[in-house]
Each structure stands twice: as structure tokens, then as C-alpha cells.
Computed example of a mutant assay.
Amino acid sequence: MSIKTIHTEKAPAAIGPYSQATIHGATVYVSGQLGLAPATGDFVDSTVEGQTRQALENLKAILEESGSSVESVLSVEIFLTSMADFATVNNIYGEYFSTHKPARAAIEVSGLPKGGLVEIKCIAAV
């Protein structure tokens, strides 16, 4: 079994003992992305809008480094600290997944790393 670890400077470094993504066969598994700026590791801002856009940009950068793309995403999981933010996150998500509609789950959680408001992970074809 061959597993390749992915890292790009265009997304924030992992904040724990994990990688940004791993590839096995023709599938890439992207770790949950927060709205952190790649250069600083800090949140881009305190709003769910800003954090969602940055989380999706981070996801996109990792997919591209993996040889994949948003159009090749098979499944997405979105973690929200408040389901009251679902419509806002959903609208921004729709900008990235306008024609391609992967399987998806949106889950409310009691907390996220570093106090984030949203975290997004995915599985994609390579």
C-alpha cells in the first residue's frame, strides 16, 4: 500500500500530528481546513463569511497540489459551531461548487480548533 503525503505553502500548515492531505491510489483525502491564512496561521477574520471563503481557498490549494481540483471532489463534510450560519456558509460553498455537486454533510459541533467557526474537509479523485 502506497500513501503519499501532501503539503503546500499555499495552505496553512497542519496544527497537529497530521498532514494537509494524503493520496492513496486515485483518491485524495484532504484534512479539515479552517479559515486560517497560509502565511500566518491566524484566522483571516472573525466572521463566518471570511473563515468559510478562506477554508475553501485552503481546500482548493491542497487539491491543486494533489493533482486534483474542486471539480473532482467526491464528498465534503462541513463542521459549523452554529447551524444558524448554515445559509451563509451554503451560499459561499455554492460559489465554489456551482455546477459540480459532490455528496455533502453539514454538522453542528460544540467547538473547533483555535475557536474557528467553520471547518471543511473533502475526499476527491486524483
Rank of each mutant, 00 (worst) to 15 (best):
G50F: 03
S75Y: 13
F97N: 03
A21K: 05
T52F: 00
E9I: 08
S110F: 08
A105Y: 11
V70Y: 00
F97R: 08
M83W: 14
A13C: 15
I120N: 02
V118N: 02
P102H: 13
V48I: 05
L36Q: 13
F86I: 07
A84F: 06
E57N: 12
A21L: 04
K60C: 13
V89H: 04
T99G: 15
K10H: 05
S82H: 02
G111M: 10
H24K: 12
R104F: 03
G50R: 06
S75W: 15
E65G: 08
I62T: 12
C122Y: 08
V126E: 14
Q33V: 01
N91G: 11
F86S: 05
P12S: 15
E57S: 12
L34N: 10
T5M: 10
I6P: 05
H100A: 14
L74N: 11
C122P: 07
A61L: 10
P17E: 10
V70C: 04
V109E: 10
T99F: 15
I6L: 14
Y18A: 06
G116I: 07
K10W: 00
I23Y: 02
E119Y: 04
I6D: 13
A14Q: 12
S82W: 12
H100P: 09
G115Y: 00
V126T: 05
L117C: 12
A26S: 12
N91D: 10
A21Q: 09
P17W: 11
A61Y: 06
Q54D: 07
E9M: 07
T47G: 03
K114N: 02
M1V: 14
A37K: 14
V28H: 04
S72R: 08
L80Y: 02
A125V: 14
V30D: 09
Q33K: 04
E108I: 01
Y93M: 01
V126C: 15
P113V: 05
D45C: 04
R53F: 00
E77R: 09
A14W: 10
S69E: 04
T47D: 01
P38E: 14
P12G: 13
K10M: 03
E49T: 10
V89M: 02
E57Y: 13
I15P: 09
E57F: 12
T8A: 06
G35P: 11
A55W: 08
N91E: 13
K10A: 01
E71S: 08
K4L: 12
K121T: 15
E108H: 05
G115A: 01
A125M: 10
A105Q: 02
S66M: 08
S19D: 05
L74P: 01
A87T: 14
A124N: 04
A39N: 14
T99L: 15
F97Y: 10
D42I: 15
G50L: 00
H7I: 11
G41S: 07
F43V: 04
H24Q: 09
I23R: 13
A106M: 14
V126D: 09
I6Y: 15
